[in-house]
Design a protein around this nucleic acid. Structure first.
Lengths: 338, 338
DNA sequence: ATAATATATGATAACGTTTTCAATAACGTT
DNA sequence: AACGTTATTGAAAACGTTATCATATATTAT
């Protein structure tokens, strides 16, 4: 395998013109004669020349690259975010560098530093959000535009695209209460240090309180977005003396764990237990019975985040803003007949 | 927001030494006195210096970046491949540039060219595999190591990591026949131009023929990996005069479409229809009833591909090889009692 | 016809690194 | 005292581009 490293210089020599002229041809600039253009183009084809972005980036001080930092690409939610961001930026001729943090703070911090070192022109960040000061200082020191998605950061001067967690939770729980008359509603939660969990919990509590129901803390189980923990949580709930009539899962991953217990114990849905979940991933409609949920907003979230980031990269100076995306119920059969 | 673009030169001036000396400190080289080292390090901290990879890459002719080119990140399978590759290469201090081809040949070709132009040091490619000659010439012209995953390419001189599609299919279909005595077995397939579909079909046919069953072409439906097409395919199959006793889905995404029809028509599994699917994604265990499938190999595939690519980048000259990863049945209740 | 402009090209410098290479100082060894 | 070795630094070149400037020619306007 020969290494092809043809440079402008080679093309220039081959076609008998100067290096800048070749550069002008490559970049389709004005002021180059048809004759020369043709000669150069055929030389480029002949030699198989490809511009080297490493050199270009150095000279132009533009990498045409953005970084996307998320906990886990293979997660339904983040996978879609990445997809949406990639689609948007690919059209704008930007490349995407992907960083997986595996929910680890240190890795996240290193990822941010690496992204900066690679001189990405912008960052989409889904943070686990415990190290706000560090992130804040990293950001302010380097002046790279960042858009935060999913989990809120308590930093001003930063754009954020978030789901309406309070409102979504409220809709789901209110549905259980008002449409079906359930009173004992359990909740399988993500880690409460993350804003998305915390706000979903707020929505749950508000729906309960607005309907004169008392919140029983023993019905709130933190399962850290994990299937296995959700399985355990469901077991604990169902073995509890105060058994719930319904369970609300804060995401679809935990729904899987929950369903595993339900299937193992042959619990009947909705007769023995009602079920709702936050995210309406495809499979949510094909478990049995299909589960009532909130319409997905991941693609929309990714696209909006990308739009905002792109504007910032182009130099937009508007006020920083927090976009909240809300979502509608998708009513299925997991709560009983409507 | 101030732009921080501190360079070696700035650090050098600040600490009263030369640029190469600062470089030596940054790269932890020998032959720099403790006194100078300390001075420089504090200057680096003071000025918030970060090395610029654009310049470094140009000088070193190494980008420490690999490209990963796949049809769709948000797909269960490819998301896991990306995850595995990212994890592997992150440990080796490589970055990942992600390219989504959306199953489009032209985009795929452009992605390869872009990756080359960015001077990635290697590529992981999940191709849709119709343009073998183009890819072949691109590859041979630039001498960048490539590892192909998922779909086979008929190119020699290239490493490939593939699943044992023939064998996997065979196991699933044989299970339906031998364990449960089904004879009329339908198949919902991906596009037959893709090697993975084609080979899965071969496995299906071989299992049928080995068991003296005739293959009825009207029971083979191409659904292009799509949920909606799989829904239609299932409808056609079930309305067919020659109704199948069992359906085999070539991937889990099509299983979702298939299940939607089944739920809509209240078809009973396994009483009215048995079901098996290729990939054992998490949700496959929580549809009702849980579906018999083949254990996932996506993470393993990604990791092995990454290992091979890394060795090639390091200059390994071994013969090119095709790795086939096989997988075991996960038997659940979608076919009847065993 | 002359000046003014538009077109076409190339020399040179610059982007921020790392890599020679040479120079100097410090250190023992004979 | 002369010498070789080792340690420590900096000057200059290089990586492959693009931008600035100057120059030369062609075209247009006066």
């Amino acid at each position: 395998m020969k290494k092809n490293n043809v440079t402008l210089k080679d093309v220039a020599k081959f076609s008998g013109v100067s290096v800048p002229t070749v550069s002008r041809v490559v970049n389709k600039e004005k002021y180059v004669s048809d004759e020369v253009k043709e000669k150069v183009l055929s030389a480029i084809k002949e030699l198989n020349y490809t511009p080297q972005w490493t050199a270009r980036s150095l000279r132009l001080k533009r990498t045409h690259t953005i970084g996307i930092i998320i906990p886990n690409v293979s997660d339904y939610f983040f996978g879609s975010i990445v997809l949406a961001v990639e689609n948007y930026f690919r059209k704008k001729n930007y490349d995407i560098i992907l960083f997986n943090t595996s929910n680890d703070e240190d890795i996240e911090e290193r990822a941010i530093k690496l992204a900066i070192s690679k001189r990405v022109e912008g960052i989409i960040l889904a943070t686990i959000s415990k190290n706000e000061k560090k992130i804040s200082s990293l950001i302010s020191n380097f002046g790279i535009p960042i858009v935060v998605v999913d989990n809120k950061l308590n930093i001003k001067n930063i754009d954020q695209v978030l789901s309406d967690d309070v409102g979504g939770s409220y809709k789901l729980v209110e549905h259980l209460i008002k449409q079906h008359g359930y009173k004992n509603i359990a909740c399988i939660s993500g880690p409460l240090e993350e804003s998305s969990s915390f706000e979903k919990l707020r929505g749950y509590k508000k729906a309960m309180e607005d309907n004169m129901l008392t919140v029983d803390d023993s019905l709130i189980k933190v399962a850290y977005w994990k299937k296995s923990k959700a399985f355990e949580a469901t077991r604990e709930l169902m073995e509890n003396s105060h058994k719930p009539e319904a369970i609300y899962c804060m995401n679809a991953n935990m729904l899987i764990g929950c369903l595993r217990y339900i299937i193992e114990k042959k619990i009947m849905i909705p007769e023995d237990l009602a079920l709702v979940t936050f995210d309406d991933y495809d499979f949510v409609s094909v478990v049995y019975p299909p589960v009532t949920s909130l319409k997905r907003i991941d693609i929309e979230m990714g696209t909006i985040a990308a739009e905002i980031l792109f504007k910032r990269i182009e130099g937009c100076e508007e006020d920083y803003r927090i976009v909240r995306i809300d979502s509608d119920l998708v009513i299925r059969n997991s709560c009983g007949c409507a």
